[in-house]
Design a protein around this nucleic acid. Structure first.
Lengths: 191, 191
DNA sequence: CTGATTTCTTTACCTATGTAAATGGATCCG
DNA sequence: CGGATCCATTTACATAGGTAAAGAAATCAG
C-alpha cells in the first residue's frame, strides 16, 4: 500500500527537514461508508490523502441529481481543490463508498511551508500539473467518445471497481442513465 | 493591453533578476489567421503568451470532426500544456482565428529556471492551479448545464466574440451541431 | 428461512439532437 | 453587375438516450 511519504516523494525529492515539517501537518481520520470528506456549498480548508478505501467525487445539479465525476480507488490526494485554490465555495462532493482511512491537513498550514520548503512547493506544482493532465484526459474522453467507448474506458481506468459499486454509480459517471447502461451491456453481451 | 510582464507578476511577485532571465527566454512571433500554434500528434516543446488576437483550441476525433474546447480572447498563456508536462504527444490543436502576436519560449528553458528562481516556479504552480480551476469550471458547465444554458454561459464568458466568429465554431464549442444551435436561437427569439 | 429492500433489467413511449439536403442571404471577387 | 463561395436556417427523417413504471434478481435483516 502506498503511503503519503511514498506518494509525495515520487513527485519530487524532498529533504528530511522539509518532510518532517510536512508530515507533522497531517492527522489520521477514519471515514465510514457514506461519510463525506467535503460537501458542495462549504468552503474547503483541508486537504486529505486517501490511504485506503474507495471514494467518489460528484456534482449535484439544481434538481439534486448527482453526476459522478471520479472514483478514488488508489492512494491519492482528495479535497475540494478548486475551492482551496480560489477560496470560493466548493462545488464538489466527496463521499466514502467504503470505510476509508485518510490523512488530513489544513491547507493553509501546507501553503505556509512553501516559502521555506521549495521542494514542497515543487511537489505542489507537479501535483497541480498532474491534476490538470487528468482533467484534460477526462475532458477528451467525454467530448470524443460515445457512451459505449466511455464504458470501456471506465473499465480500463477502474479495474475491478465495477464489481464493487452499484451500477447506477457507473452510469452516472458515464453521463447516462442506468437504463441506458443496461442497454449497452445487453448489446455488448449479444456480440 | 496586458503584457507578459503584467500578466506574470499579477500571479506572484518576481525579483528583477528572475524576471530578466525569464523575459530573455521569449521571442516575438506573428501568427496569421488560420495558422496553428500547435497541432495534435506533435510533441509540444514551446509555450506561448498570446499578446493580441483571437485563437481557438480544439480536438479532432477519428473521423476528423472538430470539437472546439476553448477560445483565447485575452492575453494568456497558450500551448500544448498537457504534452509539455507529460512529454506525450499533444492531443489538442490551437489555431489563430485572427492575426495574432505571440511571445514564444522553449518550455525546457523555462523549467531550467525553477531551481534558481523559486518565484518563477511559484508562478508556474499558480498558473497550473488556475488552469485546473478553469478546467473544472468548464467540466461542471458541461455536466450540469444543457445546451441552452451553455449557450448563455458562452455569451457571458466570451463577450462580443459571437459577432466575430462563424456560428459553427460556437456550436462546436457547445457540443452541438449548427442545426441545433439554430433551433436554440430561434426558440429564444420567439420568447 | 422469509419478508423487505435494493438493484438491475426490460418495456413503452417521448424528446433532444443528429444527418442530409435544400433554400436563401451575405459577401467577395472579377 | 453577376457568378461563386460561404454561412445560417429550415425541413424531413433517423437515432441515441431520457422517463416512468413494472418485473426480476440479488441482497440484507430479523
Amino acid at each position: 500500500m502506498i503511503s503519503l511519504q511514498h506518494f509525495f516523494t515520487s513527485l519530487t525529492p524532498v529533504s528530511t527537514t522539509s518532510w518532517e515539517q510536512f508530515a507533522a501537518l497531517f492527522r489520521p481520520v477514519t471515514l465510514k461508508k457514506g461519510d463525506y470528506f467535503i460537501r458542495d456549498g462549504q468552503l474547503a480548508s483541508e486537504i486529505g490523502f486517501l490511504e485506503a478505501g474507495i471514494m467518489r467525487a460528484f456534482y449535484r445539479n439544481a434538481e439534486a441529481v448527482e453526476y459522478n465525476k471520479h472514483f478514488f480507488i488508489n492512494p491519492c490526494f482528495i479535497g475540494g481543490y478548486a475551492s482551496l485554490i480560489t477560496g470560493l465555495p466548493n462545488q464538489i462532493n466527496q463521499q466514502a463508498l467504503t470505510d476509508c482511512s485518510v490523512q488530513v491537513a489544513r491547507y493553509a498550514d501546507l501553503q505556509a511551508l512553501y516559502p521555506t520548503c521549495p521542494d514542497i512547493e515543487r511537489g505542489a506544482r507537479i501535483l497541480a500539473e498532474q491534476f490538470f493532465v487528468q482533467k484534460e484526459r477526462r475532458e477528451i474522453d467525454i467530448v470524443l467518445l460515445d457512451a459505449d467507448k466511455r464504458y470501456e474506458q471506465f473499465q480500463r481506468d477502474f479495474k475491478h471497481l465495477e464489481q464493487l459499486i452499484p451500477q447506477y454509480h457507473i452510469a452516472s459517471y458515464l453521463g447516462i442513465t442506468p437504463t441506458q447502461l443496461s442497454r449497452i451491456r445487453k448489446k455488448r453481451a449479444g456480440l
